[in-house]
Design a protein around this nucleic acid. Structure first.
Lengths: 312, 312
DNA sequence: AGCCAACGATCAGGTTCCATGATCGAAGCC
DNA sequence: GGCTTCGATCATGGAACCTGATCGTTGGCT
C-alpha cells in the first residue's frame, strides 16, 4: 500500500494559503503568521508538490501574486478543514470542562429581554453546576459566525438562519406591531394601517440585521421606501423616541414595553410576516448534555410564553 | 500571537486514531498503515498532547483497548476531515485532467438501461473531448460512498438520498408496475390489484437496496409480508423468471422490456409510490464545467423521456 | 544605463518531529 | 514460573520545518 502523500499534507500549509489569499502577498502572510517570507515560500512550494498543481501565480518583481483556479478551489477546502478543526477543538474544550462546564450562549437584545430571564432561572434550577456565559450582538450573522468558529455553543437567532453548517430549532413566532405615540391618529384607527401608510411616517428603526432587512423589504414592496429617521440597537431607545413623538416603529411584539403610557401598540393584522426566533448550533459539533438540556428548556419556556400571549 | 497547537496537528495521527478504532488495536492499525506499533503509540500520544485529553483507554496487558468519549467525538471530526481531503484531492485531480478530462459517473442498471444511451450520445456530441467513465453498482448507497470519497464525480441515485454531504437534482419519476406472466388471472383483471393480493403471489425481487426496501415496506404495510422467492440484480433475469411463471414482480416501469410477449404489465394505479431518480454529487466539491454540462444534459434528456412516456 | 525598492525563490544550517528497532512493563493463561 | 499478547518508552537516524542571507525579477525614477 503506497502512502498517500495527501495525508502528509501539513495543515499549516493550508493556513498559509488562506492567509496569502487574504493579505495578497507572501510577505504580509508571513508577518501575520509569525514566520519569515522564506518559510511561507517553502510551505507553498511543499503544498504544490503534494497537490500536483500550481496554486499561486508569481509574476516576479513587485507585481502582485494571484491564486490560480486550483488555488481558489483548494482554498475553499482549506477553509472547511480549518472550520472543522475549530469545531473539534471546541468539542474537546467542552469535554475538558466536563459536566460542570460552561455553556456559551449567543443572544440579541429582544430575545434576551423576554426569554432569557425565565429560561436562565429555570435552567439554573435544574443544572446548578453549569455556568452560562452570554455573548450579545445586534447582528445575528455575527453570532452564527461565532458558533461556526466554536466560540459559542448555541445561539438565539432569527430563522431561517444564513446558510452554513447549522442546525436550528424554532422557539416562537413574534409578530410585528406598529408602535405609535399616544394620541396619534394611527392610535385611534379601527383597522390596521397599510404598509404604504406606514412608509409615510418617520420611522424609528433598529440597527440593520437580517430580520430588520426583511421588514424594510416588505415595506418597500408597497411601492415606497420606508423613511427611516433613526436607528438604534436598543429597544428602550426606540420606544422612547416613539413616545416622544419623533416617529413610529415597526417592532417585534417581544421588544415592546406594554405598560408605557406614551405609546400605543397597533396590531398589523399580518401585513408584515412575523419574526421567527429559534436556537442554532453547529451541525458538526458534539452536543453536550448541558447544551441538550438548554435547548429543551428553551423550547418549554417559549411554548409557555406563546401560550401566555395567545391567552392575553 | 501564540501559535495554535491544533494547527500543528498531523493528519496522519487522525488517520491512526481512525484505524485503531477500526481494527481494535495499535498493532493491527500499525500493520494496516505500514508503520510499527511504536510509531502508532507515539502518534496517539502526540495527538493526545495536542487535544489535551486521553483518547484511548489502554488497560494494559492483553486486554483490548477502547476509545474514550473524547476519542469517539474526535473520531467523527477525523472522518469528516479525511472526507474533505478526499474531496480536495478529487478536485485537484479533475483540474489536472483539465477540460479534456474524465467525468466519472455512477449508475445502476435500470437508470443505465433507459437514460444513459440517449444521454451519453447527446453529451458526447456536445463535448467530444470529455471522456466518461462509468461505474455500476446495484446498491445506491455504495455509489454515494464513492461520490463522498471522491472516486465518482456524479451518480444516478434514487431520491431522496441517504444523509451525507450531497446535493441532488430530480430527473424523473418512475412508477412501479406489476409484471405478471401472460395468461395470468392478474393479467386480465380490470382494476389494479391490492397490495395484499400482490403479497399472496410468489414475488421475484431485485437485490436489496433503498428503493427496494421502500417497496417491500409498502407491501408489508398491507398486513402481510411479501413472499420473495428470488432476488436478482438483473432486469432481464427478473423479467425472464416472471415470463417463465415462477412469480410476479413489482418493478419500476423503466426496467421493463415492454415488447416481451411472455409478460403483461399491470398498472398499479399509485398503490406504490413511484421511484424518483435523480443525480447526486458531492456538496463540498468544485463542479467542473463538464460536470455541470452533464447534469444539464441529463435534466433535458429525462424531461424528454418523461414527456414521451406521458404521451404514450 | 544605473540605482533603488518590492517581491518571491533558493541556499545552508539548526531544530524539531516522525519512524524504526529494541526493550520494558502489565496482564492473562497454563 | 514461563510464555504470550499488548502498548509504552528509549535511543537513534532521517525528513521536514524554520531562520537568515543571498539571488533573481520587475517596475519606477533620475
Amino acid at each position: 500500500m503506497e502512502p498517500d502523500r495527501w495525508l502528509g499534507l501539513d495543515l499549516r500549509h493550508l493556513i498559509a494559503l488562506k492567509t496569502i489569499a487574504d493579505t495578497g502577498s507572501f510577505g504580509r502572510a508571513a508577518d501575520r503568521l509569525g514566520y519569515t517570507q522564506s518559510a511561507i515560500s517553502q510551505q507553498i512550494a511543499a503544498l504544490e508538490r503534494v497537490v500536483g498543481l500550481k496554486l499561486i501565480d508569481r509574476p516576479g518583481g513587485p507585481r502582485p501574486i494571484s491564486l490560480t483556479e486550483a488555488g481558489q478551489i483548494l482554498l475553499r477546502h482549506a477553509e472547511a478543514i480549518e472550520a472543522r478543526l475549530h469545531a473539534a477543538k471546541a468539542d474537546m474544550e467542552a469535554l475538558s470542562a466536563g459536566e460542570a462546564g460552561r455553556l456559551r450562549v449567543g443572544t440579541f437584545q429582544s430575545a434576551g429581554a423576554r426569554i432569557l430571564p425565565v429560561l436562565l432561572r429555570r435552567f439554573s434550577e435544574a443544572h446548578p453546576q453549569v455556568e452560562i456565559s452570554l455573548q450579545e450582538s445586534s447582528d445575528e450573522d455575527d453570532l452564527l459566525e461565532m458558533v461556526e468558529r466554536g466560540e459559542l455553543d448555541v445561539t438565539f437567532n432569527t430563522l431561517p438562519v444564513s446558510s452554513g453548517p447549522f442546525e436550528t430549532v424554532e422557539l416562537l413566532s413574534d409578530p410585528y406591531v406598529l408602535v405609535v405615540p399616544a394620541g396619534s391618529p394611527l392610535a385611534a384607527a379601527t383597522r390596521a394601517p397599510s404598509l404604504k401608510e406606514i412608509t409615510l411616517q418617520p420611522l424609528i428603526g433598529f440597527s440593520r440585521c437580517r430580520a430588520m432587512d426583511a421588514v424594510e423589504s416588505q415595506l418597500t414592496s408597497s411601492g415606497r421606501a420606508p423613511n427611516i429617521v433613526f436607528r438604534s440597537d436598543n429597544n428602550g431607545t426606540v420606544q422612547g423616541l416613539v413616545g416622544a413623538g419623533v416617529g413610529v416603529s415597526v417592532a417585534p411584539l417581544l421588544t415592546v414595553e406594554a405598560d408605557d403610557p406614551s405609546v400605543v401598540v397597533v396590531d398589523l393584522a399580518g401585513r408584515i410576516a412575523p419574526r421567527v426566533i429559534g436556537l442554532a448550533w453547529h451541525r458538526d459539533r458534539h452536543r453536550s448534555p448541558a447544551a441538550d438540556a438548554f435547548v429543551e428548556t428553551a423550547i418549554a419556556v417559549c411554548s409557555e410564553l406563546s401560550a401566555a400571549s395567545a391567552a392575553a
